[in-house]
Amino acid sequence: MSGRNGAAPLYPGEKPVGPPGARTPVALLETRLGYGRYAPTGDAVRFTLNGREIEARADETILQAAAREGVEIPHLCYMEGMRPDGNCRACMVEVEGERVLVASCSRRPMPGMNVRTDSDRALHSQRMVLELLVNDAPQPPNLDTELGHWAARLGVSAGRFPMRPQPAPDLSHPGMQVHLEACIQCTRCVRACREVQVNDVIGYANRGNAAKIVFDFDDPMGESTCVGCGECVQACPTGALLPSLSLLAR
């Protein structure tokens, strides 16, 4: 079964959907976000980062330009090479003149923009997001994961909030394990499965605090249409998706 990729009409009389040449969901997202093949080209952009004037390429986000300049911004749902989704909100920065904070993974600098990654307000949100996520993760946090790394880096730990109910692990697949008790709903696995490998087995189901990663119709991974490519394991920043112990032991 393929994804939403039919460029030609499927049925006689079907009307085309979306702008010409942009019918796949990924292409639609790229059009909207000005990302991938729709990324802007042109002159470098000069803007101010933490009081220092720096230059960014036209297609760079604040987070990418900052990283090149050696300014570290926490991030979890963003992964180099993948479409930024801006959902985890760990990379929030303060932009002068804007009412709320800005996700630096998903925003391109504008000429003259004044950005602070280290203001009290930005740091408060970065820390709180990490604290909320670590609070609901298995304890102690695994420092080998990106979540554990950033929590340690920002000096946050669990305990101030009631913990969410935790699901049981899914060990149905011979090659991979699913530990949603460590999941932070960043949807990197969804993008890995849907947009990188175009397998489209993983989805993000339910709503609110009950939202969860699922395979097909919330089936056990081993009984789903998963082909076992492992892209989701590569993408997971928390160890919610892991290689099986039997593979590790080899």
Binding site: G86, N87, L132, L133, P162, G208, N209, A210, A211
Partner: peptide, 22 residues
């Protein structure tokens, strides 16, 4: 708000749920 949060971003998904309990 906790009931109607879509679950996309951390502050709202987790924040409304924890606030409601507290």
């Amino acid at each position: 708000f906790a009931h109607e949060s879509c679950g996309k971003c951390t502050p709202c998904r987790v924040g409304t749920a924890k606030s409601e309990i507290l």
